[in-house]
């Protein structure tokens, strides 16, 4: 049978035909494409089907269903419980502890600070290298200074004395070398530079002592003037005696004499 008629008949049997379908069906019957006998047979069979008694479930079905429902509800409640559990623990810990939240924030801040300190003070290989390099540079400068102080050229020796101002710390070797220069160098300029250099290390007792002792050994008025000024600047009371001794020298320069007197007065 044509699919078209099958659809029409299915709709007819189900009593679910549109007006258009009804017209189409009537036309098909008139044309003999659908026979009345065929329709009757189908209709009979279709109605017979409805006569098939409706099976009834046993009471067990209801009983089992409600048991299942209760079980499922319990399972769901349990699942929810599990989901909430970790949150409850956290709440218990934070809730029971007075100021728990405050403590939590303090711990966090502390952690941040600790991290910052660690970050800034962590061993930095580059800074270590830099420190090593600086140390080496200082060593080299020291060596260069000591070598240059022994040179015959006064300019070289002057440069050597000036190099000491670049040294961050002067060890006894450098101080000794400077004192040696101050007392024995032939050039007045070099001696003056040595005084300036030693004054920078006035905190060192050896340097101070050396400067005081040097007063009696100098014959250049310029160096004597410079020493008198430095003693005042250092407020070195021990220099009074050597200065007084200097005043007693017969051929002392007048300007030096006046300066030394003034210095002694200041120091006393």
């Amino acid at each position: 049978m044509d699919e078209k008629f099958e659809k029409l008949l299915a709709g007819f049997l189900d009593d679910n035909q549109s007006e258009e379908d009804k017209k189409l069906m009537a036309a098909a019957m008139q044309a003999g494409e659908i026979k009345e006998e065929q329709i009757n047979n189908l209709q009979n069979f279709y109605h017979q089907l409805s006569a098939v008694p409706e099976p009834e479930p046993s009471p067990n079905l209801r009983q089992n269903f409600y048991r299942m429902l209760v079980q499922e509800k319990q399972k769901e409640a349990l699942k929810k419980d599990w989901r909430i559990q970790p949150q409850r623990w956290l709440e218990a810990i934070l809730g029971n502890f007075i100021g728990g939240r405050l403590a939590y924030s303090i711990v966090l801040i502390g952690l941040g600070v600790a991290l910052g300190i660690w970050y800034n003070h962590r061993p930095n290989p580059e800074s270590e290298k830099l420190a090593a390099l600086t140390g080496e540079m200082q060593q080299m400068k020291k060596m260069m200074m000591l070598t240059m102080l022994a040179k015959p050229s006064a300019t070289q020796r002057l440069k050597a004395v000036n190099l000491t101002s670049d040294l961050e710390t002067a060890d006894s070797k450098v101080i000794q070398a400077l004192l040696q220069t101050l007392n024995h160098d032939a050039s007045v300029n070099v001696r003056l530079a040595a005084i300036e250099a030693l004054y920078e290390h006035a905190a060192n007792p050896v340097a101070r002592q050396g400067l005081v002792q040097s007063i009696g050994q100098q014959d250049s008025p310029l160096v004597q003037l410079a020493l008198a000024d430095i003693m005042v600047a250092m407020q070195e009371k021990n220099a009074v005696q050597p200065l007084k001794k200097l005043l007693k020298q017969e051929n002392l320069n007048e300007a030096v004499k006046a300066k030394v007197k003034q210095s002694i007065q200041v120091l006393i």
């Binding site: 699919e3 099958e6 659809k7 008949l9 299915a10 709709g11 049997l13 189900d14 189908l42 069979f45 279709y46």
Partner: peptide, 9 residues
């Protein structure tokens, strides 16, 4: 569905 229902019959 109509076609299948009819054929089932």
């Amino acid at each position: 569905i109509k076609v299948r229902a009819f054929r089932a019959l």
